[in-house]
């Protein structure tokens, strides 16, 4: 994946080489494994490029209202006067002008650029929140099950299997409208915050299993290590074992799985919005925009192009960064 994997690997080999450690100790003072991973990450061009891109996207999402102000156009503003009689934007490439950088939506005549910025905000928020919640659930259950074992482990495993056996798409399709109906009735105007909340909840219910399994496996492997036994032999309690001894050693795989879960949730959100169970048209989102744009695939390709490229770039950057992060944190696995 990375452009210069050799350097990272070689460096890691040398650092972990017991023979070389005296040399390393002489030259470098007190570099923690985390700092070494950071150095490797910084030396990896893919990681730097994708990381910068991600930061850029996040800043865009965060600063959406500010951009709206500077840009001077709101996400719900309609520019019917710039459409022709058939509702198609006037001008070239879907109505790209100095005022409307990515052109206008056919039909309603809303500005695509500002809607994309808000869509990015929605997508990132949903994906990050869902990833955070699933990671929390997964780490908690995985650590406890792995470390304590016994009946707790059996129960957690059973629930994991049960969750994995449930078909995600069908339940999401069935559950989302049902919940909406339950809260808002037939005619109620669904608030965008509610739609977002339901999506996050659905992701959280289904998304924690892989993290839980990963963490459980890691903890079981660590549990038998002698430094854990040393802490036990000194009389350490459960809290110390989990938070001081075990977790610091597994946050690397957790971080990697987190960074790879985020793009998954972005595409899932788009997919759900696409099949109509996600967000309503009110809330700008990638999936919804692509769904709407498909009718104009032949007449106004620019409408499909901009959201498509945006979501592709975002997911690609996340995946590249996740892989680079994995290489940096665990250099031996990349060979």
């Amino acid at each position: 994946m990375s452009l210069s994997p050799v350097e990272g690997v070689a460096l890691a080999e040398i650092e972990s080489d017991p023979d070389a450690s005296t040399t390393a100790a002489r030259g470098v003072v007190g570099r923690s494994p985390g700092q070494l991973a950071w150095l490797r990450l910084r030396g990896d061009r893919t990681a730097v490029v994708s990381g910068v891109l991600l930061v850029f996207f996040m800043v865009l999402g965060l600063a959406a209202p500010l951009i709206e102000m500077l840009y001077g156009v709101g996400p719900r503003e309609q520019f019917q006067n710039l459409l022709d009689g058939n509702g198609m934007p006037l001008g070239y490439a879907g109505g790209v002008t100095g005022d409307h950088w990515f052109g206008l939506e056919p039909g309603l005549g809303r500005d695509i650029f500002v809607r994309l910025i808000y869509g990015l905000r929605t997508s990132l928020f949903i994906a990050l929140a869902a990833a955070l919640i699933t990671a929390t659930i997964g780490v908690t259950l995985g650590t406890l099950a792995g470390y304590l074992g016994g009946w707790l482990d059996a129960v957690v495993n059973w629930i994991t299997d049960l969750t994995l056996a449930m078909p995600f798409l069908i339940i999401a399709l069935a559950l989302t409208p049902a919940i909406t109906l339950r809260f808002y009735g037939e005619r109620g105007q669904v608030s965008s915050a509610f739609g977002v909340g339901v999506l996050i909840a659905v992701f959280a219910i289904f998304g924690w299993t892989s993290t839980a399994r990963l963490v459980r496996g890691q903890v079981i492997a660590l549990r038998e290590r002698e430094f854990v036994e040393a802490a036990k032999a000194s009389g350490a309690g459960l809290g110390h074992m989990l938070f001081r001894q075990l977790l610091p050693n597994i946050w690397a795989p957790i971080l990697v799985s987190f960074s790879l879960a985020v793009p998954q949730f972005i595409t899932s959100e788009a997919a759900l919005s696409f099949i109509g169970v996600g967000l309503s048209d009110e809330t700008p989102s990638f999936g919804r925009m692509i769904y709407d744009s498909l009718d104009y695939l032949q007449t106004d390709p620019a409408y499909v192009f901009f959201p498509g490229v945006m979501i592709f770039a975002l997911v690609f950057a996340f995946n590249l960064f996740g892989d680079a992060l994995r290489d940096a944190l665990d250099p031996k696995s990349s060979r």
């Binding site: 040398i14 080489d17 023979d19 070389a20 450690s21 005296t22 040399t23």
Partner: peptide, 8 residues
């Protein structure tokens, strides 16, 4: 002391 590192 310790055995030397071949790198250094």
């Amino acid at each position: 002391g310790n055995p030397p590192s071949l790198i250094n």
